[in-house]
Design a protein around this nucleic acid. Structure first.
Length: 468
DNA sequence: TATCCACCGGAAGATATGGGTC
DNA sequence: GACCCATATCTTCCGGTGGATA
């Protein structure tokens, strides 16, 4: 862009950069940050450390199950202990590794095993490459002066060559597991061989383990928990993290007893504890005197209402800071926290609704239309009727009512609608539902989807149903 | 008290897709 | 190219369900 008549050329970002920044280090307020100190979680951290210390003695630690609601510091504490464990293992030269898997993303047996197999294959290849470098250097030296092999594991140059060939063959044999296509037992044996390639204790951290069990049953946990009896060189231990206290009810009793050898519960934080946590992070995240006195108590109070969710509290504080910075305010004030609360709520709707499959969006649109037409206690039959009309109008496939009830249940689980099964006696049994998200904003997100663009034109046809 | 409604929701299987192996 | 495997999505079938009503 060219600015006229000799004005000083102010770039797009110059204005934004000209104000005093409020943040010193915003990253410490993000969920991905693992803090060095976790206030009010000493007991749980010490308990984990007491259990895992046996890994540093080369023994197999007991499997651990960690429970607690969202934002109670489970993952952060477990990651903190893992980092400490790995750094201590390096200090004392004990082979001990922790592998983190988020089961919300990696939610099938195949994917979990494939991810683990590929991680260990990569590690083994690095180890082999280092050893090869070392042996090749030694070989070069031995060609000039064969006495360098004296007092080593190799008596002759041929022995050394054999070892190099062996390692090269090992590296070649290690084949990465593809995203799909292999039978699961082949993926399992590939992982088994990769992890057992050399002596080590491995802690497999399965975050949101309940999602894995919900989606693909307990086969993965069964296979992992019985591996130790077959491994020669290595040992594995499982650390499961779950939001759901009852997920073990669905497990095979053998898996249940093996997995829950040790259980650690993370209770929700109260408002005072949240205030401590926020203060702790705010000291690092913000410039001095960048917050008014009421900002942290308000963030803590909002988050305490959300079942003591520290992640929410930190999110709120970060967003309030960003909003203050955007409005070029010098300090973060109470109004920014309130604006942040609204923004987070709206962002959540957009984030959940936008990626929905088209069919779910049509079902949701049917619920919105009913709600906008003043229908209270919307039931499955009504939703299905409107849904069919909408599909016809926009030329989409019409799914069966059975499938639509599943889509409604999914919307319920996502917190977009609130559905309850009610019996109306002679008038049958159905699900009654209402929207749990703002109508206008949700409708706008749905209409922004090009595949649903025509749905706006279909509304008069649906309206006619209410007029008749 | 038996009947009935309008679904719910589990189970099994079909189909499609994306990948691999031989 | 035929076949195998994992996964996602969807259909079909069918046994509940529970409170109003006859």
């Amino acid at each position: 862009m060219v600015l006229d008549d000799g004005e000083e050329n102010q770039g797009l970002f110059d204005d934004l950069l000209s104000g005093e920044p409020i943040f010193e280090n915003k990253e410490v307020l993000r969920p991905s940050y693992t803090p060095h100190e976790l206030p009010h979680r000493n007991d749980q951290i010490n308990r984990m450390a007491t259990i895992l210390v046996s890994a540093l003695r080369g023994e197999t630690p007991s499997n651990i199950l960690i429970y607690g609601k969202t934002g109670t510091g489970k993952t952060a504490s477990a990651k903190f202990v893992s980092q400490e464990l790995e750094s201590t293992s390096q200090k004392y030269d004990v082979p001990c590794e922790v592998e983190y898997i988020n089961c919300e993303v990696t939610d099938t047996q195949y994917r979990v095993l494939a991810q683990l197999a590929n991680t260990f294959i990569e590690k083994n290849q690095r180890i082999i490459a280092n050893r090869l470098d070392h042996y090749r250097d030694r070989r070069s030296a031995a060609i000039d002066d064969p006495t360098v092999l004296t007092d080593t594991e190799f008596e002759t140059l041929d022995d050394l060559d054999d070892r190099i060939d062996e390692l090269e063959a090992d590296a070649e044999e290690m084949e990465e597991v593809p995203m799909t296509g292999w039978p699961t037992d082949r993926v399992y044996s590939t992982f088994f061989e990769a992890v057992d390639y050399h002596e080590r204790v491995v802690v497999i951290m399965l975050d949101e383990i309940d999602k894995l069990v919900e989606k693909s049953g307990d086969d993965t946990l069964y296979n992992l928990s019985r591996m130790n009896s077959e491994l020669d060189r290595s040992r594995i231990s499982i650390m499961g993290i779950s939001n759901d206290l009852k997920f073990t009810d669905f497990l095979d009793p053998r898996v249940k007893s093996s997995l829950g050898e040790e259980e650690i519960v993370f209770p929700p934080y109260d408002a005072n504890q949240l205030r401590d946590i926020l203060q702790h992070r705010a000291d690092i995240a913000f410039k001095q005197d960048a917050l008014t006195d009421d900002v942290i108590p308000l963030c803590a109070a909002f988050a305490a209402q959300e079942h003591g969710d520290a992640r929410r509290a930190l999110d709120l504080l970060r967003t309030a800071g960003e909003l203050a910075e955007r409005s070029q305010a010098e300090i973060v004030a109470e109004k920014h926290v309130r604006q942040a609360q609204d923004k987070i709520e709206l962002d959540r709707v957009v984030e959940v609704v936008r990626p929905l499959p088209t069919q779910s969006k049509i079902v949701l649109f049917a619920v919105i239309l009913l709600e906008k037409n003043g229908v209270h206690n919307i039931n499955t039959g009504e939703v299905f009727n409107i849904y069919k009309r909408l599909c016809e109008e926009i030329d989409a496939d019409v799914l069966t009512q059975r499938r639509v009830t599943d889509l409604i249940s999914e919307l319920d689980m996502l917190g977009i609608v609130n559905a309850v099964v009610v019996s109306k006696g002679r008038y049958g049994r159905t699900k009654e539902m209402g929207l749990s998200v703002p109508v206008e904003e949700t409708e706008a997100v749905l209409l922004s989807d090009s595949r649903l663009g025509d749905i706006e034109n279909a509304q008069p046809f649906v309206q006619a149903r209410f007029d008749n």
